[in-house]
């Protein structure tokens, strides 16, 4: 049973076609968007999340699901960690009395309860990304989009972020993420969507994708990535 359907989705900017003819049904709990640079992965993620409006086609949610997104570079307001998390909650209409508790819970789950009163922008990149995850998690989204969440992080922070994503998914939140890290995709995803040149090449269960992708484009991509 799918929870998101894209039909004839395309996006052009000026004369440049960034995405074209994407027909896709998402049903898996954890999906990785893979593809070389410029394939349109991040754009597709933003179209799904509603940050971009498609030039053609539709994004339809059979049942509207609450969403959140975490970006490659964490974007923190000039305020405390607590205020950053509470800000998201206030935008979603969580009553003031309940915000603090939810923020504390989310911080505890990302392993940073002691940072609650620190200035968010003074934290390290890894800590900021975990706060960004806490901010998203506190919203209790049904779908969480992640755009290269570990691309700017050191290995230790990356592992921690992966652990957190796993926990969020374990709580029943659907995960859709782009990543350059095939090992990460393998560890996290159930299903891979492979894009190239703005087109959907294949949608394959993760084990099958890495064992025997159905398109030669994906095969070459995996070879290149593992080879390099």
């Amino acid at each position: 049973m799918h929870w998101l359907e894209l039909q004839g989705l395309g996006l052009t900017e000026g004369a440049t076609r960034i995405l074209a003819d994407i027909d896709l049904k998402l049903g898996a709990g954890r999906t990785a968007l893979l593809g070389p640079n410029g394939a349109g992965k991040s754009t597709l993620l933003r179209l799904m999340h509603g940050l971009l409006r498609p030039s053609t086609g539709t994004v339809s949610w059979p049942n509207p699901l609450s969403q959140a997104m975490v970006f490659q570079r964490p974007v923190m307001l000039r305020a405390t960690v607590l205020a950053n998390i509470e800000y998201g909650l206030s935008l979603r209409g969580v009553p003031a009395g309940a915000r603090r508790r939810k923020a504390d819970e989310a911080l505890a789950r990302v392993g940073l309860p002691e940072l609650v009163h620190r200035q968010a922008r003074k934290l390290s990149g890894g800590e900021q990304q975990r706060v960004a995850l806490a901010r998203a998690w506190a919203l209790e989204p049904e779908v969480l989009f992640l755009d290269e969440p570990t691309a700017s992080l050191d290995p230790a922070s990356s592992r921690e972020v992966e652990r957190i994503i796993g926990e969020i998914a374990a709580g029943g939140t659907k995960i859709v993420m782009t990543t350059h890290n095939l090992g990460q995709a393998h560890r996290i995803a159930e299903e891979v969507i492979y894009l190239e040149g703005g087109r959907l090449m294949e949608q394959t269960p993760v084990e099958e994708f890495f064992r025997q992708p159905s398109t030669s484009a994906a095969r070459l991509f995996i070879q290149d990535e593992l080879g390099s």
Partner: peptide, 12 residues
Amino acid sequence: REYREQLRSLGA
């Protein structure tokens, strides 16, 4: 430019 996507994602 810096905050647009984050704020819209949060629903502002």
